[in-house]
Design a protein around this nucleic acid. Structure first.
Lengths: 138, 138
DNA sequence: CATCAAGTTGACGTTTACGTAAACGGCAGT
DNA sequence: ACTGCCGTTTACGTAAACGTCAACTTGATG
C-alpha cells in the first residue's frame, strides 16, 4: 500500500475548475445533471473536483469540440467507467474502444481532406493574385 | 474557350442530392436560407444542383462534423467565394485561409490526443482482463 | 381526367446545450 | 451585524439546427 493517504490530493472548487478549463460553472453543473461527471461534496454540499474529475471534464470538452453530442459522450463514459466487472463486460468495453479508435481515425482522415479542400481554395486565390500582378505589368 | 457548352453538365434535384449526401431536403433548404448555398432554379422554380453546389454542400457537412457552427461555415464560404476582387481582398482571403489551416492542424493534434486518451482507457481494461485471467489460474 | 409523387413556401414544434435570474446558505473581513 | 462573495437548487429563457405539417403547383402516369 506504500504511502496511501499521505500525499494530500489536490482538489478544486467548481469555479476553480471552470476557470482552468475555460467553461462556465453552469456548464459543469449541467454535465453533472446529465450524468457525465460526479464530483464529491463537502459536508456543506459544495462540489469539489479532483484530478480524475478534471481529466474526465477535459475528455468531455474534447469530445464536444469534434461534434460528439453529450449523449454520445455519456454513452462512452459509461462504458469506460472503472467499475465494470466480468470478462464479458470487459471484452465489450475493449471492443467499444476499438470501435471508437476506428471512428477517430476516420475523423482524422476526413480532417485531412478538409485541410486539402481549404488548401486548394487558398491556392486558387494565390493564383488569382499572381494573375493580377501579371496584368499590372502590361 | 475550347468546347464550352458542349459537355452537358449534370444536375440533380434536391432529393437526389439529399440522398447522395445523406441529409434531408429540409436541411438543404435550411442551408440555403442561411446563405450557405445558392442552387439555380428552373423556370418553374425548382432548385437544381450542379457539381459545384454538391461540392459546397459536402464542405458544409464536413465542417459540421467537426463542430464548426453553420455561422462559422458561412463566414468561411463567403470569404472563399469566387467573386472577390482586388489585391487587398485577395490577400485577406489568403490570410484567412492560412488561419483556417492552422486551426485544422490544431484540431488534428487534439484529435490525436483524444485518440491517445481512449487508447489509454482501453489498455487499462485490457490490463484488467489479464489480471482476471491470472486470478483464474490460482 | 384523376391522381399521385415531388417540388415549393410558410409556420410552428422540438431537441440540445447551455444562459440567466431568483432565492437562499455559509463564511471572511470590517 | 452588515456587506460581499461564493456556493447551492429551481426554473424559465433562448439560440441553433433542424423536423413536421399544411397548403399549394407541377409533371408524369394509368
Amino acid at each position: 500500500m506504500s504511502r496511501e493517504g499521505i500525499q494530500e490530493e489536490e482538489s478544486w472548487t467548481i469555479s476553480d475548475l471552470a476557470q482552468q478549463l475555460d467553461v462556465s460553472t453552469r456548464t459543469i453543473r449541467y454535465y453533472e445533471e446529465l450524468g457525465l461527471i460526479f464530483p464529491s461534496r463537502t459536508e456543506k454540499g459544495s462540489r469539489h473536483y479532483k484530478r480524475k474529475d478534471r481529466a474526465r471534464l477535459r475528455l468531455i470538452l474534447r469530445g464536444k469540440r469534434f461534434g460528439f453530442s453529450l449523449d454520445q459522450i455519456r454513452e462512452m463514459i459509461e462504458l469506460f467507467d472503472e467499475d465494470r466487472t466480468g470478462r464479458a463486460q470487459l471484452l465489450r468495453t475493449i471492443e467499444y474502444g476499438n470501435q471508437k479508435l476506428a471512428e477517430i481515425d476516420e475523423k482524422i482522415m476526413e480532417l485531412r481532406q478538409l485541410r486539402e479542400d481549404i488548401l486548394v481554395y487558398k491556392q486558387n486565390f494565390e493564383q488569382k493574385l499572381l494573375e493580377e500582378n501579371e496584368e499590372e505589368k502590361r
